[in-house]
């Protein structure tokens, strides 16, 4: 059959590269999210705005405001950790994709997925340490946050950021987020930025492009 022949041909052609590890894209600029875990009221307007923007039914949630609480009555605490796709420096999802649907943009480091190329093997879903790729059972394909690239290209910010009633979610060049240079009301005057918060998977796995204002109980040493 011609198909098997082609397959063999491809195999042959790629053979000389076969032990090459893929070279991660080094973006000209890496955009990332910043979220204030403390001042966030957890209203999930960002989540719903995202669902509406991306036309998703119940099930897949590109953005997830996660509620953390602890302590013992009456000494309790609560805070929120809000993540969508972290557009990692070394995205684990990307090399797992058999169809090349996932790619990292050179100009801004956004990790995008073209779900029209997805065959639903769900490897990326398993590989992501942060739960970003979301399987959409209605289409049997995986979709995820692309930081609203259409809005970025139009000179605006993603829907989630523009939905935030408390103004505690923002985007910016991730270096500026981390070193505190980004001008944003998401970060308060006395706030410090953490790259890793409690219960978040080890950031060394993929180097996620995200910064948090961590809660005192959510800080890691």
């Amino acid at each position: 059959m011609s198909e098997t022949k082609d397959k063999a041909k491809i195999k042959e052609a790629v053979k000389r590269h076969k032990r090459e590890t893929y070279i991660p894209v080094k973006p000209d600029l890496q955009l990332g999210f910043v979220h204030n875990n403390v001042d966030c009221i957890g209203c999930r307007a960002c989540e719903i705005a995202c669902k509406d923007k991306n036309g998703l039914a119940a099930g897949p949630r590109f953005r997830r405001v996660q509620y953390i609480e602890g302590g013992t009555y009456p000494n309790v605490f609560a805070y929120k950790v809000n993540m969508s796709c972290n557009h990692c420096e070394f995205p684990a999802c990307l090399p797992t994709c058999p169809t090349g649907a996932i790619f990292k943009r050179k100009e801004d480091g956004i990790v995008d997925i073209d779900s029209t190329l997805c065959i639903g093997c769900r490897r990326c879903e398993a590989a992501c340490p942060f739960g970003a790729p979301q399987f959409d059972p209605s289409d049997s394909i995986v979709k995820k946050c692309n930081m609203c690239v259409d809005e970025i290209e139009a000179g605006r910010k993603p829907y989630c950021v523009m939905a935030c009633m408390m103004r505690v979610l923002d985007i910016g060049p991730v270096d500026e987020i981390w070193n505190g240079e980004l001008e944003t009301v998401a970060i308060g005057p006395n706030d410090k930025i953490s790259r890793q918060v409690k219960n978040m998977s080890n950031i060394e796995l993929t180097k996620p492009s995200i910064g948090f204002v961590a809660h005192s109980k959510g800080k890691v040493k």
């Binding site: 058999p98 090349g100 997805c118 065959i119 394909i141």
Partner: peptide, 18 residues
């Protein structure tokens, strides 16, 4: 997996490097 992706990429015709 789907026989083909929504844009018509056939599963049998793709191969990731690994």
């Amino acid at each position: 997996v789907l026989d083909q992706s929504p844009a018509g990429v056939k599963s049998s015709e793709v191969m990731a490097w690994y």
